[in-house]
């Protein structure tokens, strides 16, 4: 399929995964017979204990890995390793992926080059890219970092630049792998507000996290992985987080876990 035949602009269902499985070489399957769908504008969190397959699922959604069995449909088009190269440019333009480790995502010599990398690869003019950089840097509060090398930034600054480098391409879907990892509480609140604003603007948000305080604030629906790499639950967040027995069974929380009513109220008022 050629990329110009693919028109993903008006598609309510962003992703549909049916009975997909994936195993890394010489390893047990990390995803087993998994079925899932994501609609446009949805806020979805992927939860589960360490090593349950969350990151692998996100990489499949980001077009970095391909299911070894089952079908993946994105924007109404079946995606496979064979067909993907012809539509990868448009796919990556529509689906932004923010890595858990910002270090791997920041590979340019300065923050300015980092932010410009994606849009320049897309073929946008330098003037447009420069305007976008100025506006985005102001929004993220990183204007003073533009000439600095990414390696010299703090953890929070690196995360901001990593997010900025993806937002520069203005993706419709934002996939975040453990977005609050290595962030201090202040930066976590900043990220929360940003994600809420992006969600209001109509972006689809999919993220994996262990931070259950964050989940009700920025997601409506949660998919919970069991330790056997299958889906244990796919429920509205408020229902899932109240089911502490289920969360304990999949080893995500211990018996001291509890939620507060204001967790949900805050999510609604925002």
């Amino acid at each position: 399929m050629k990329s110009n035949e693919w028109n993903p602009t008006h598609c309510a269902e962003i992703f549909r995964l049916e009975h997909i499985s994936y195993a890394y070489p010489q390893s047990e399957p990390v995803l087993k017979d998994l079925s899932l769908h994501v609609t446009a504008g949805e806020r979805l969190s992927i939860l589960g204990a360490n090593g349950c397959g969350k990151s692998t699922l996100l990489k499949i959604l980001a077009g970095l890995l391909f299911p070894q069995s089952g079908t993946l449909t994105a924007f109404g088009t079946p995606i496979s390793e064979k067909t993907f190269p012809s539509l990868s440019g448009l796919y990556h333009r529509k689906v932004g992926f923010i890595f858990q480790d910002s270090e791997v995502q920041l590979f340019c010599s300065t923050v300015l080059e980092e932010l410009a990398f994606g849009p320049l690869q897309l073929g946008l003019s330098k003037e447009t890219v420069r305007t976008r950089i100025d506006e985005l840097a102001a929004m993220l509060g990183i204007e003073s970092l533009l000439e600095k090398p990414p390696f010299r930034l703090s953890g929070g600054e690196k995360k901001k630049v990593a997010i900025g480098s993806v937002l520069m391409m203005n993706p419709d879907v934002l996939i975040l792998d453990e977005p609050t990892n290595s962030l201090d509480p202040r930066s976590q609140t900043w990220l929360l507000r940003l994600l809420q604003a992006l969600s209001k603007a109509g972006k689809t948000l999919i993220f994996s996290t262990h931070n259950l305080d964050l989940v009700p604030q920025i997601s409506d629906r949660a998919v919970l992985f069991d330790e056997d790499h299958s889906i244990a639950a796919d429920l509205p967040v408020r229902l899932l987080l109240k089911d502490t027995e289920l969360l304990k069974r999949v080893n995500l929380v211990d018996e001291h876990f509890h939620t507060h009513p204001w967790d949900f109220l805050q999510g609604e008022t925002e």
């Binding site: 980001a62 970095l64 440019g89 990556h92 333009r93 590979f107 990398f117 993806v166 391409m169």
Partner: peptide, 9 residues
């Protein structure tokens, strides 16, 4: 992968 995600040609 990170480069591919940002349309590296």
């Amino acid at each position: 992968d990170a480069m591919a995600c940002r349309c590296f040609s």
